[in-house]
Design a binder for these strands. Structure first.
Length: 644
RNA sequence: GCUAGUGUGGCGCAGUUGGUAGCGCAAUUGAUUCGUAAUCAAUAGGCCGAGGGUUCAAGUCCCUUCACUAGCUCCA
């Protein structure tokens, strides 16, 4: 007998009982919704037969691993459909991802959207055929033989790269067999609602030197209604796309003759960035930061010391040619080596530390042409940059302060609930990308890990995501398409201080290199603006809104009164506009509403006689009548408190 | 940079097998002086991203290039 613990309850089963039978013994309902299960913590298919006492937890579509099982099986159905329609296509890999799945193929000829429809139709046929998925294992030599016979070169490569002791498993469904660790659903008929979404290129094994394969993305749900709702949600999210909304609301634009990744910030966009910049600089200064203002470019000599010339040259705009020109300049891609010169201006004592240098810094990075995206990835951007030089005993406290400042900014902007932490480490298998020795990297990462653990930061590790000079704590955020970008980064650097000969005289009279924290408190303004547009769908909180109040006179007869109101608001520094066109009030309200202005004040005969205004909020509609002073007090408080 | 796709007046779109550009909204002008999401009418606006080519004839076909979109790689 095998004892199986199901949540709190322990039950005994015959030897040879599968998890599906276990589920059935509990209830038919569970057997219907269970997709896979964890057995002592590892995910298994329902065909798994426990051989010893264990703890089983059934997974449904509500569990992440359950969803993954469901969608992974769907990716196999996709592969089967593709092989039926395009027998010459080669299979690469096909995992489940957060919201669906994909499968990479090497097609003989490119496929079209029309093909995608055909493939989806074939998938539906396979689902209807309700083919059982059968798992089997093969020794390495036989596994290789099977894949070679089928001409699956990519699978052969995958098998060859598996560790010696790995179990090599396959899943077979009807005429289709795939190398796969599983687990899977028991049959293709379990899949209910599917949708192939789009195709994209993807390099084999994620390496740009390898062949580019065709990746087909899709998703699957247990109910048609859930699929429809998901697609509807995606469509809704796209309406918030900053790249569309930002242009419609005249926040920014781009011009072909200026070039890619070089957006024009229009008055509204420039205003929001000015507000953010003042907010950030004031807050930093209050927290002990001092400002530097350093050049936008430098001779190649500087970048040779910092390592940029060897490790980042492709990412820089270089002016001139070392072969022919006496001096070669490059626009700065980072502020670090420039701010270090401020530190180096004189000899430092341990008493001088920490030194906190902030700069609102414009940077230039020659991104590959396919990388640019609205305001999120650009070639010129301005970042709230800063470098903090400190002693080892100050490192943790200062790191914490930098982090707290970033969190304060994110909370104030209302973005904090949307971010996640990533501990970006180096890739020991790709040492050429980094400066420093393995010992230095291990030490830097250990130091950072200790601090992060001590501060109880819930992070994910990103191998190979580090800067070339040190590990980072990245604060990540997703855009409306679900694509993740780094908003804020805080880095610990031990290497550049040494390279630049930055020192301080310690208590004992010896010279030491300071620790350097590279950090930003709000990230780059363009990217932050993009995410704010998406967060608020263009309807910015009053403290950020480029126009806070729009005055709408009912007719031309009240223009004089409207002018008085305008002057009163302007005098107090509110950002206001006056709509003095001879339009009907409904029309003016509609336009102000579409421009997403937080407040409208309506002035007609009644208000003029009473000396009041009628206030309409973008969010809550008509707020009734009040005096202009009452309105200004209300709005001032909202702005002061940075209500979001 | 790579894969796939897109590019027609400010915006959203039409433009059939190549025959010489249209619609809605916005804009402008005039009338209307209006009470919480669209007043009526008239007018103007485009060498169809750019540069070549094929053709009697190109928005429609071919080539090159630029920009935009999604994804990959890279990254704040």
């Amino acid at each position: 007998m095998i004892n199986i613990t199901l949540r709190d309850d322990v039950k005994a089963f015959e030897n040879g009982t599968s998890l599906l039978d276990v589920a059935k013994s509990i209830s038919e309902g569970l057997a219907r919704v269970a997709l896979s299960a964890t057995v002592d913590g590892s995910v298994c298919g329902l065909d798994f037969v426990p051989k010893k006492d264990c703890v089983v937890n059934f997974l449904t579509f509500d569990d992440e691993d359950g969803r993954r099982t469901y969608r992974h099986t769907t990716s196999h159905i996709l592969a089967q459909a593709v092989k039926r329609l395009f027998p010459s296509a080669k299979l690469a890999i096909g995992p489940a991802i957060d919201d669906g799945f994909y499968y990479d193929f090497d097609f003989e000829n490119p496929i079209t959207n029309n093909d995608l429809e055909k493939i989806e139709a074939e998938m539906k046929k396979i689902i209807k055929e309700d083919l059982p998925l059968e798992r089997f294992e093969l020794p390495r030599a036989e596994a290789l033989k099977l894949m070679e016979e089928k001409g699956e070169a990519y699978k052969v490569e995958l098998i060859n790269d598996l560790p010696e002791d790995a179990v090599i498993s396959f899943y077979k469904q009807g005429d289709f067999t795939d190398l796969c660790a599983g687990p899977h659903l028991l049959s293709t008929g379990k899949i209910k609602a599917i949708k192939l979404q789009y195709t994209a290129g993807a390099y084999w094994r994620g390496n740009e030197n390898n062949k580019m394969l065709t990746r087909i993305y899709g998703t699957a749900f247990p109910k048609k209604a859930e699929l429809d709702e998901y697609i509807e949600r995606l469509e809704e999210a796209k309406k918030r796309d900053h790249n569309k909304l930002g242009r419609e609301l005249e926040i920014f634009t781009t011009v072909d003759s200026i070039g890619q990744g070089l957006p024009i910030l229009l008055p509204k966009g420039a205003k929001i960035i000015q507000i953010l910049q003042r907010f950030v600089e004031d807050h930093e200064d209050k927290n002990g930061w001092v400002r530097t203002k350093t050049p936008y470019m430098a001779k190649s000599d500087l970048y040779k010391i910092s390592g940029h010339w060897d490790h980042y040259k492709d990412g820089m705009f270089v002016m001139g040619d070392e072969e022919t020109d006496k001096e070669v300049f490059a626009l700065r891609p980072m502020t670090c080596p420039f701010q270090y010169q401020a530190y180096l201006n004189r000899m430092r004592s341990y008493r001088d530390l920490p030194l906190r240098y902030g700069e609102t810094s414009t940077l230039f990075r020659n991104e590959a042409s396919g990388e640019m995206h609205g305001l999120i990835r650009v070639r010129q951007f301005t970042i709230s940059e800063g470098h903090l030089m400190c002693r080892p005993d100050q490192l943790e406290e200062e790191f914490k302060n930098c982090l707290e400042m970033a969190i304060y900014m994110l909370k104030t902007l209302g973005l904090y609930e949307d971010v996640s932490y990533r501990f970006s480490q180096w890739d020991p298998d790709d040492k050429g990308k980094y400066i420093g020795t393995e010992e230095q990297w291990n030490e830097a990462q250990d130091t950072m890990a200790k601090i992060l653990d001590h501060l109880e930061i819930p992070y994910k590790v990103g191998v190979g995501e580090a800067a070339f000079y040190g590990p980072k704590l990245d604060i990540q955020i997703k855009n409306v398409f679900g694509k993740e970008d780094t908003l804020i980064t805080i880095q610990i650097d031990q290497m550049l201080a040494e390279k630049f000969g930055m020192e301080y005289i310690d208590k004992d009279g010896t010279k030491k290199n300071p620790y350097i924290i590279h950090r930003t408190s709000i990230g780059c303004y363009e990217r932050t603006l993009a995410l704010l547009i998406e967060k608020y769908a263009g309807a910015f909180p009053a403290w950020l809104a480029p126009t806070q109040v729009k005055i709408l006179p009912i007719s031309d007869n009240y223009l004089d009164y409207a002018d008085k109101l305008y002057a009163a608001l302007k005098e107090k520094g509110f950002r206001i506009e006056l709509d003095d066109r001879s339009e009907k009030i409904g029309y003016k309200i509609r336009e102000a509403q579409l421009e997403k202005v937080p407040y409208m004040i309506i002035a007609g005969e009644k208000e003029m006689n009473e000396g009041t205004v009628s206030v309409r909020s973008r969010k809550n509609g008509d707020l009734g009548t009040m005096t202009i002073d009452e309105f200004m007090i209300m709005l001032s408080k909202e702005i002061e408190d940075k209500v979001i």
